[in-house]
Nucleic acid binder design. Structure first.
Lengths: 262, 262
DNA sequence: GTCGATGTTGCAATATGTGGCAGTGATCGT
DNA sequence: ACGATCACTGCCACATATTGCAACATCGAC
C-alpha cells in the first residue's frame, strides 16, 4: 500500500483526513477555504474529503465547511421549555410523595427542576442536590435546608458532577430520591447518555430508601446507550403520559411502579 | 502565501450561532451591533442568525438584540443593584489582575458577582467558588472550568457554607482569590459579620498565593464585629472610591495595597 | 410629534456547492 | 513492455446559498 513515504510535497488523502479530524476536535469547525490553503489542494478536493468523512458519520457538512457533531444532549437552557405542562404535572405527583422531615435528593435536569418547583409549597425538608438552579430555587423557601453537592460544574446540566460530587453524595442518608434519565428504553428500563450519569444514578438508587425516576413523554421515543445498574430496585417511574403497552409491561416485570401524572 | 494564519477570514454560520448562544448563556442578552462588530459582518446577517435561532426556540428577539428565556429567575436580591456602577468598575480592575491558566477563587457576594461578570470575556481559567450564581454564570463561558464548592446553602448569600465548604476549599491550590467583606474598619482592616465568614476568609488568605478584597464604597461607613485573621497578608483591597485619608493610611501600614477602580 | 436607532425587504454581488470532464500517475493483467 | 483501468485531482460551467447595500417601515425616547 502506502509505505509511509516521505512527504511528497503534497499530503495524501488519509493524511488530510487525519488532520481535518484533528482540527475539528480542536476547533469545533473547519472551513473549506482554510483547508484548501493549508493543504494546497483545490476546494473541490477538500469538499470530497468532507463528503467522505460525512458519509462515515465523522462530521457534519455546513455551508462553507464542516462542523463536529455535538455528542451530548442539548444544553439545559434549550430544554427547559419543552413540554412544560407535562413536567409540571410530574412535579406535582412527585411532591405528593414527600412528607415533612424527609431528606430528599433531587437530581439535575429540567424535569427534576419542575419537581423542585412543585416542592416550594412544602416545609421542613432537607434537600440534597447537585443542581445549581434547584439549590438557588429552594434555598429561599423557609423551612428548607439545602445542601449543595460540590464538584466540577457541567455547563450542559448546570450542575456539579465528577468524583467530588459522587463522594459528597455518598455521605447522605436519603429518604427519597428523584432522578432524571435520558430515555425510557423499549425493554422497560431508564437509560442514560453517559457512563458518569448512569453510575451516579445507580449509586443513588443504592443510597436512597426510595428512588423515583421522573421522565416526561419526550423521552419515550428516544434511545440512549447506557443502562443504569440497580434500576430494578427503584420504587417507581413517574411519567406524564401512558407509554406503549409493551414498554409498560416490560417495566412492570422489572419491578418499579409506573405512575402516570395528570 | 497564507501561512495558516489564524484568520479564517470569517466565522462560519454555525460557529456564529454557537458563540451567540454562549454569550447568551454567559450574559443573558446580546445586542445586534455588538455581535456585528465582533464577527465583522453586517447587522442584517446577525439579525438573520437571531431569526434562525429564534425559530428554533433557542432565544427570544428583543429590540436591539436577543435575550435568553429565563425559566424562573428568582428575584435578584436588592443589594445587587446598589452601586452597580462602582461594582462594575471594581470587577474590571479585578479581572485585570487575572491571566490565562490561573486558578481563581471567587467568594460569595454581590461585589464578587460583579467580578465574575467582568471575567466572562476571559478564557482558560479554573474557577473555584461557593456562590451558586457565580457558578451558574461562569460555567457557560467556554474555556472556563468551574468547581462548585459544596455545603449547606446560606439563603442570604446564595452560596454554600459550613464545614463541608471549608473542607472542599482547602483542597485547592489557588493563584488569586477575590474576597468580599462586611466593612472597611477605621483602623484599616476588612471586617466581617460572622465568625464563620471571618474564619473562612482567613483560611482563604492562607491558601491563595494572592488575595484581594473587593469592597464597594457602601461598605466604608459600616462597622462589623469580626476581624479577619491574617488580613495583613492580603495582597490588596480593591474599592471604587477613595476612602478617608486616615483609613487609607492605616491600611497602608498593615500591608495590603489600596487599589481604586475607575 | 420629531428624530435617531433599529427592523424589514428586495436586489445585486460574492462565495460556495455540484456535476461533468479530462489529465495524471499507479496498478494490474496480458 | 504495453495498454486498460482506476483512483484521485483540478478545471470549468452552472446552481444555490449567503451576504451586504440601500430604500423604506417601525420603534422608542424625549
Amino acid at each position: 500500500m502506502s509505505p509511509d513515504s516521505s512527504l511528497p510535497a503534497r499530503a495524501l488523502a488519509p493524511r488530510r483526513h487525519e488532520e481535518i479530524l484533528r482540527r475539528l476536535g480542536a476547533q469545533g469547525s473547519v472551513s473549506v477555504a482554510e483547508l484548501a490553503g493549508f493543504f494546497d489542494v483545490s476546494r473541490e478536493t477538500i469538499r470530497r474529503d468532507l463528503k467522505l468523512l460525512s458519509d462515515k458519520g465523522q462530521l457534519g457538512i455546513v455551508h462553507g465547511g464542516a462542523a463536529r457533531f455535538e455528542p451530548s444532549e442539548p444544553a439545559m437552557s434549550l430544554r427547559s421549555h419543552e413540554n412544560a405542562g407535562g413536567k409540571a404535572a410530574i412535579g406535582r405527583t412527585a411532591a405528593g410523595l414527600v412528607t415533612d422531615g424527609m431528606v430528599v435528593f433531587l437530581d439535575s435536569g429540567t424535569t427534576t427542576l419542575a419537581v423542585a418547583q412543585a416542592m416550594t409549597d412544602l416545609r421542613d425538608l432537607t434537600i440534597c442536590t447537585a443542581s445549581l438552579k434547584i439549590a438557588l430555587l429552594l434555598c429561599h423557601v423557609s423551612g428548607m435546608r439545602v445542601h449543595m453537592l460540590g464538584g466540577e460544574v457541567d455547563p450542559g446540566e448546570e450542575a456539579a458532577s465528577g468524583i467530588d460530587m459522587l463522594e459528597a453524595m455518598s455521605r447522605f442518608r436519603v429518604d427519597v430520591a428523584f432522578l432524571g434519565g435520558g430515555a425510557l428504553s423499549p425493554d422497560g428500563e431508564v437509560t442514560d447518555f453517559t457512563r458518569a450519569g448512569a453510575e451516579q444514578r445507580s449509586r443513588m438508587i443504592a443510597l436512597a430508601a426510595k428512588t423515583y425516576f421522573v421522565l416526561d413523554s419526550s423521552k419515550f421515543a428516544k434511545l440512549t446507550p447506557l443502562r443504569i445498574p440497580n434500576f430494578q430496585r427503584a420504587a417507581g417511574v413517574i411519567v406524564d403520559a401512558k407509554p406503549q403497552a409493551d414498554i409498560a409491561e416490560a417495566l412492570a416485570r422489572k419491578g418499579p411502579e409506573l405512575m402516570i401524572a395528570s
